[in-house]
């Protein structure tokens, strides 16, 4: 059911800082994605499909591909957050195992797969590195609608792509500060005074999320 949502083309993160690239045009014919000139660059939203395959069919091949993409990133993220290599490796494995176990809880109308993986990795960091509990907000009651609307899924994933592009376009110094904040290196006071919060870049993302969350209240 999630096979036709690859409507957003995303740029593969560059190995080194490059100039901002404008968002690619949607390449879509009758609901089917058309391969772009560089197929590696069109893979990002497929992770949604991978997660659904894990959820619905315990698909180990899908998991292996997700693992190959995300596990090294989680490890690098945790090492930049102050973990040593051994612990980062262990934690990355546990984060990926959590992804498998909680695939049924993933809501593609509220997060991209990368965002979801980030929240699991962040909580693991708080738990293991800071030895601290992580209070999470009350789960929302979504009522009888079991499956999310495809249009909501697409809207959120497109919005995430735009957010990525907007963040990539920020000046290098500001991007570094935002990274530092997410590695856990800045206190909330430093965040207030130093990052120059990217509010413009997330404003429409917030509006979309709010619309979606209000559904939960009705």
């Amino acid at each position: 059911m999630f096979t036709e949502i690859d409507t957003v083309t995303l740029d593969e993160p560059a190995a080194e800082p490059v100039a901002f690239q404008p968002r690619r045009e949607l390449k879509r014919i009758k609901g089917r994605r058309v391969n772009g000139t560089n197929s590696r660059r069109d893979t990002k939203t497929e992770w949604l499909d991978h997660v659904m395959r894990i959820r619905d069919a315990q698909d180990q091949a899908a998991f292996a591909e997700l693992f190959q993409h995300f596990a090294p990133r989680i490890k690098a993220f945790l090492m930049k957050s102050g973990s040593d290599a051994t612990m980062a490796e262990e934690c990355a494995q546990e984060v990926m195992a959590t992804l498998w176990n909680k695939a049924h809880l993933f809501d593609p109308t509220r997060a991209s797969v990368a965002t979801w993986v980030f929240t699991i990795a962040r909580n693991k960091r708080i738990d293991v590195l800071r030895k601290q509990r992580r209070p999470e907000p009350e789960e929302l009651a979504w009522g009888p609608e079991a499956e999310p609307e495809q249009t909501d899924v697409i809207a959120l994933q497109q919005e995430t792509a735009q957010l990525r592009n907007a963040l990539s376009a920020l000046p290098e110094a500001q991007r570094e500060l935002i990274e530092k904040a997410y590695f856990g290196d800045l206190s909330h006071r430093e965040i207030a005074t130093q990052t120059g919060l990217p509010l413009g870049t997330i404003k429409s993302r917030i509006r979309l999320a709010l619309d979606r969350l209000r559904h939960a209240m009705n």
């Binding site: 989680i74 993220f77 990368a114 979801w116 980030f118 995430t160 990217p198 997330i202």
Partner: peptide, 11 residues
């Protein structure tokens, strides 16, 4: 959180 997802993706 989506900003955090971007930071993770960039690693």
């Amino acid at each position: 959180d989506a900003v955090g997802g971007h930071v993770l993706e960039e690693q």
